[in-house]
């Protein structure tokens, strides 16, 4: 069963609260001078986040009691029934953004960008092969012209080519 929006919202606040708590614990290992300002700021943030977490928790419980579910009644997806689809789309979007980072890291800016755009247009937008290839080649050519000819600045070459 997929988690409901109210729960995810509360979990998001909790994750920020935990990050803050980790920073607070970590700041105790610093010297008094280095910890002075971070401690003051983190304590304040932690208090605010704890308060927000409580508010989210109460809101979730109220919503659950009213609707018999943990879902947020203000969630725009509820009206369209698009929520599960949105979650899939979210993970798909994160996959594409991460893939860009991975491909560019491995193959460099020019080759990585071209390969990524080819994969994205074919895999996500379902464009024709001809369109995808022309787009990718055009992008590679533009980036090459920009970096090598116009700016004379070498772009990031990629981990694969660095190793060779």
């Amino acid at each position: 069963m997929k988690p409901a929006t109210g729960v995810v919202r509360t979990a998001f606040t909790l994750s920020m609260l935990l990050f803050c708590a980790w920073m607070l614990v970590d700041s105790f290992s610093l010297s008094r001078t280095a910890a002075l300002i971070p401690l003051a700021v983190i304590s304040g943030s932690l208090g605010l986040l704890a308060l927000q977490f409580l508010l989210d928790l109460i809101a979730s419980r109220k919503e659950a009691a009213l609707n018999g579910t943990d879902q947020d009644p203000h969630d725009p997806d509820l009206a369209t029934g698009a929520q599960p689809d949105r979650r899939i789309m979210f993970f798909r979007a994160v996959f594409w953004v991460s893939l860009l980072a991975f491909v560019v890291w491995g193959l460099g800016l020019v080759a990585g960008s071209a390969l990524f755009s080819l994969a994205f247009l074919r895999g996500h937008t379902r464009e024709s092969w001809a369109y995808c290839i022309v787009y990718a080649l055009g992008l590679a050519l533009t980036l090459s012209l920009l970096f090598f000819v116009l700016l004379n600045v070498p772009p990031y070459a990629g981990a694969v080519f660095h190793c060779q």
Partner: peptide
Amino acid sequence: GRILPLILVLAAVGAIQYRGMVADLLCAV
């Protein structure tokens, strides 16, 4: 669908070329 690859690539160029660090792109993600 057609402009997203361009936006993503522009963002990647911006993130990496700023300090010449590919880790900045991971940070941006």
